[in-house]
Amino acid sequence: MFEARLTQGSLLKKVMEAIRELLNEASFDCSENGIQLQAMDNSHVSLVSLNMGSEGFDKFRCDRNLTMGMNLASLSKILKCASNSDAITLKAQDDPDTVTFTFESENNERVSDYSMKLINLDQEHLGIPDTEYSCVVKMPSADFARICKDLSQFGDCITISCTKEGIKFSVAGDIGTGNVKLAQTANVDKESEAVTVEMQEPVSLTFACRYLNHFTKATPLSEQVQLSLSADVPLVVEYKIGEFGHIRYYLAPKIDE
């Protein structure tokens, strides 16, 4: 038996928005530790890794590890039927062929349930090596989304350069160039507005705008985004999910041939 109840059901809706353009289908792995998902995007270029720890759920029971393959267009239809203030409960039997979603309104006067057929996905599991990054930047997620959107008007790739002073985003295209520099913030009242840089050595790497823009669909999950960069290894773009989880996107840099 698997059962997971999340009072703040809107988090699940936001997670869905953060992955549905990148993935057509995905396997959700459930264990006593929580719910995990790991998948390459549809074009097999970027990797999405989602983790929601069991401690973040109001109720979490998972008697046997199970994998639930879901069509994300179908899952999206179901989650759209939940209000932002609803509590969401997922339920499945051991070795399930369906999963049930129950949505309860705050006052418990409206309860709806939907069941969805699961699909068999033969997805390979990838190991993510532990990596020391040359630069780890934390910045407001809305700012990152805006920069990616603004700069992608001018070219297909954004170069991210990081020094101890701050981070710079650059684009060059047919009509000209664009640069946005963010200095590391000295003192900010709100932690969510801070820009912080932990640097071992400076890096400058170029990434496809198309994927960066996909990653920013996770912006509503968290006020801050963390970018981890090192030469020749994939960039990690991480958004926290409440206090109990995260979604990480991996994308390898482009290299001039």
Binding site: V45, S46, G127
Partner: peptide
């Protein structure tokens, strides 16, 4: 190599 190839070489199949 392409971005795709570099992703593949970073991640190992478990």
């Amino acid at each position: 190599g392409s971005v795709q190839q570099r992703m593949d070489s970073f991640f190992t199949v478990v």
